[in-house]
Computed example of a mutant assay.
Amino acid sequence: MKTEQGVLRISIAVTILLAGVGILFGILSGSFAIVFDGVYAMTDAAMTVVALLVANLIASSASGAGKGRLVKHFTMGFWHLEPMVLGLNGILLTGAAIYALINAIGSIMAGGRPLDFGQAIIYAVVTLAVTIAMAIAGSRANRTIQSDFVALDAKAWMMSAGLTSALLVAFVIGSLIQGTQYEWLSPYIDPVALALVCLVIIPIPAGTIRQALADILLVTPSDLKSHVDAVARAVVERHGFLSYRAYVARVGRGRQIELYFIVPEDFPAKKLQDWDRIRDEIGLAIGDEGPDRWLTIAFTTDPEWAD
Rank of each mutant, 00 (worst) to 15 (best):
W275I: 01
Y244A: 06
L17I: 14
D229H: 06
P303V: 07
G77V: 03
F32M: 12
L101K: 02
G64C: 10
D302S: 10
I136A: 02
A62P: 00
I122N: 08
I102Y: 14
L224V: 13
L199T: 11
I145T: 05
A133C: 09
G6Y: 05
A19H: 08
I102T: 11
C198V: 07
A166H: 10
A269S: 14
T127N: 09
I34M: 03
I286S: 06
A62T: 07
E82Y: 04
I297P: 02
A129I: 14
A269M: 09
G174P: 11
I98S: 02
E289D: 13
L196G: 02
E289Y: 01
A13H: 03
S31N: 12
R250M: 04
R238F: 06
V200C: 03
G287C: 05
F78K: 04
L24A: 15
A246W: 14
S60G: 15
S11I: 06
S222L: 09
A129E: 02
L8W: 00
G22A: 05
I27T: 12
A104V: 09
P83H: 01
V85E: 01
L152D: 14
A285T: 13
S175N: 10
T180P: 08
G106M: 13
T300N: 10
M134G: 07
I98T: 05
G90F: 02
L185Y: 07
T131K: 15
L57I: 10
E281I: 12
G66I: 11
F267Q: 07
T296P: 06
R293D: 05
Q181G: 05
H239C: 11
G254K: 12
G26W: 12
G87I: 00
G22K: 03
D153Q: 08
L199Y: 01
Y188D: 05
F32N: 09
G95C: 12
R277M: 11
G87T: 01
G283L: 00
L199Q: 02
H239P: 06
M76H: 08
L18Q: 14
A156T: 15
L86S: 01
W157H: 15
M42K: 04
F299C: 00
F171H: 05
A154K: 15
L176H: 04
G26V: 06
S31Y: 06
V197P: 08
G30W: 03
T220A: 06
E82G: 07
Q146Y: 05
